[in-house]
Design a protein around this nucleic acid. Structure first.
Length: 257
DNA sequence: ATGCCTCAGCTCCTGAGA
């Protein structure tokens, strides 16, 4: 099976690119972030025409997530249970034998800000919930736009961005705490080229200069780790004419679809 | 440069993203 995550920065703008990408990359599960559209406008028919079922959870202007799958998705959860949130950030479902969580982690804006505080609270609640999900579902994939780098190797300018948003010790603590639940950064299970990123600022020719961050991750549980076969970031969509600022991340894993 | 680009919306400016 192949699992992928992509922050599309408006599904309205990016729908043709997502459909084209799925046709050349027929993954089994794709989770989307920043759909930025209300549920009544979600283009479910366009995905079903390509053979994908969809689960979606959106809102006006900001946030919004979706889970596309070839096989049917069951036991769907939207947002973190027991965490009151007016932002649409999480979609979770069982696909085949695997529990899949797609998440759009809060940005956090700046250390010390109210939004940073919200990010910390959200991360704490996410972890408590994922812990329970792992107990119920040993085969689990947690993927999405984490808005956190693991370490300097995920950052184009580690010195210049030290302690800046996405690179603070507090954020990285929460990321390591997720790992400590029994999860693995599937990207680093394989040899990767240096300076590999999943997001580049729209400004200042950042993509052309490869000034980016690796903030989109696919974490897999202990039970799935020995089955992982490959993980890569697909740079092709970032070269499109009107690209998202994020690139998709794809995991290949030896489970029957 | 509290700048640079992109997107949504009470749209010709502003807030937010990362």
């Amino acid at each position: 099976m192949k699992f992928a995550t992509w922050n599309v920065n408006s599904l309205t703008v990016r729908l043709p690119q997502v459909l084209a990408w799925l046709q050349s990359n027929p993954v089994d599960v794709l989770v989307l972030q920043e759909t930025k559209t209300t549920d009544d406008k979600f283009p479910a028919d366009a995905f079903s025409a390509l053979g994908y079922q969809a689960q979606w959870f959106g809102q006006k202007t900001y946030n919004g997530v979706a889970l596309l799958s070839r096989a049917s998705a069951t036991d769907v959860i939207k947002n973190i249970p027991d965490f009151a949130d007016d932002m649409a950030r999480v979609i979770c479902a069982t696909v085949g034998s695997t529990r899949v969580i797609g998440a759009y982690f809060p940005n956090g804006q700046a250390p010390g800000s109210d939004k940073f505080e919200y990010k910390m609270e959200w991360l704490k609640s996410l972890r408590a919930w994922v812990k329970k999900e792992l107990e119920l579902h040993p085969q689990l994939v947690l993927m999405g736009d984490y808005n956190i780098t693991f370490d300097d190797s995920d950052v184009w300018d580690p010195e210049g961005l030290r302690d800046q948003i996405h690179c603070t010790e507090e954020e990285r603590y929460h990321l390591r705490a997720l790992i400590a639940l029994g999860l693995h950064d599937s990207y680093r299970l394989f040899e990767q080229a240096p300076k590999a990123y999943s997001w580049w600022d729209y400004r200042d020719f950042a993509f052309r200069r490869n000034r980016g961050l690796r903030i989109d991750h696919i974490l897999i549980s202990n039970a799935l780790k020995p089955l992982a076969r490959a993980c890569h970031i697909d740079l092709a969509p970032r070269k499109n004419e009107r690209p998202s600022d994020h690139a998709p991340v794809v995991l290949e894993i030896e489970i029957a679809a």
